[in-house]
Simulated assay, not measured.
Amino acid sequence: MKKAENIIVGISIGDLNGIGGEIILKTFEDSRVLDFCTPVIFASAKSMNFYKGHFKSGINFHNINGMNQLAQGKVNVLNCWNEPVKIEFGKEDIKIGSYAIKSLKAAVEALKRDEIHVLVTAPINKYNIQSDAFKFPGHTDYLAQELKGESLMFMVTGDLRVGLLTDHVPVKDVVTHISEELIVKKINTIHNSLKKDFRINKPKIAVLGINPHTGDNGVIGREDDDILRPTLKKIKEDGKLVFGPYAADSFFGSSNYKNFDAIVATYHDQGLIPFKTLSFGQGVNYTAGLDKIRTSPDHGTAFEIAGKGTADSGSFKEAVYAAIQIYKNRIDYEQLTANPLKKMRK
């Protein structure tokens, strides 16, 4: 791993008809960001110049055709295609989806070759990316295939971190996916990420129940009693500070979440509704558990406001900052394991 002071941030462009181009421009128009990272946008000079003209941006791009042409302290645009692309803001378009995947694949290959240190992904449209060559419900599943490790969707903002046992799974199928093996794997991933990526020495993890009121002793389902509680007991016996299951309906409203370093939700909306309510516009989607670092904003393509110049870049900017900080934390962790006398934050 290279030194932290010269971090190269790879950026996949996402859906060209969404707000990705706008929030990328707004993030790097602040030249101070270039003091601690060098961005590389995987797209094309023609597409980025279209955004520059449309949004009347003063940003200056450094266009390159290979990573060997990278310029430090510049906003680099790596040409993943050269043909002109018709950008129509707000339109769902299969062809535009193919360019989002072309950008993503090029960025991931650069990440695997250590040509970039971290990856930040702009939002994609999950429908128009589907093809014979790409059959994934989103970034996370693709990255899980391409990178080493056990991937986990980890939503983070400040001291609030929410991980998911199941992510893009239909509600009717959630219970069939939950098993002792899955619970152990996901909690281990969260525990290791808290130590390695967030430098928390003895993380405290809360787990939300599967059923309303965690099943009310079987009156509203047996899954909490038959699967979740016995598994959490085994994990505690292994020495991890894991607590629960907690009834999800009151956990966040009571501010109980503030007592833990991370919360594990059993399915997507159980975790993301309270997370986005508390943090919308500043939250970051981090794919924990992999050997490489990837973050993204906590929102989608926002077709309804695309091209209007009103998109909030806060979450994307936080995704850039989070990727950089996690990269630095991993370097510190490696140094810590080499020198155990260096103390971590408790």
Rank of each mutant, 00 (worst) to 15 (best):
K105Q: 14
T121P: 12
T27E: 04
Y51S: 02
E22W: 06
E88A: 12
A106R: 12
G90W: 06
G66L: 00
S131M: 07
G10T: 03
L119F: 09
D35E: 15
Y127W: 05
L119C: 02
K74D: 00
H117N: 15
T121D: 02
Y127F: 09
V108S: 11
N128D: 10
D93I: 08
D15A: 05
G73F: 07
I124G: 09
H117Y: 04
F42E: 01
G97L: 07
F28L: 05
W81G: 04
I64A: 04
P123E: 02
V118L: 11
L119V: 03
I59S: 04
G20Y: 11
A100L: 08
F50G: 03
T27P: 11
A110C: 15
N125E: 02
A110P: 15
E88M: 08
E109Y: 10
S47D: 11
Q72C: 08
L25V: 02
F61R: 00
K112S: 14
E29L: 05
A71M: 14
K86I: 10
M48R: 00
Q72D: 04
I101N: 11
N63P: 02
A71D: 03
I19N: 10
Q72Y: 10
A110L: 12
I124T: 03
Y99W: 06
K56G: 04
R32P: 02
G58S: 02
A133F: 05
K46C: 09
K112M: 12
N17F: 05
F50Q: 09
N49Y: 00
G20L: 11
L119M: 03
K126T: 03
I11C: 03
E83S: 10
A122E: 01
N125G: 12
G53K: 10
I19G: 09
V33L: 14
E83P: 05
I41A: 11
P39D: 06
L111S: 11
S98R: 15
L34V: 03
D93V: 08
I13L: 10
D30V: 03
F89Q: 03
S131P: 12
I124V: 14
H62N: 11
S12Y: 05
V75A: 10
V33S: 03
I87V: 13
A133N: 12
K95L: 14
I96T: 15
I41E: 06
V85C: 07
F42T: 01
E115N: 13
A100V: 02
G66W: 00
G58T: 00
K126R: 13
I87Q: 04
L25I: 10
L25G: 08
A133S: 15
F42V: 01
Q69I: 01
F89G: 10
V85K: 10
L34H: 05
L78W: 05
K91S: 09
I116F: 07
E92S: 13
A133G: 04
A110I: 12
K26A: 05
K91W: 01
S98A: 15
T38S: 15
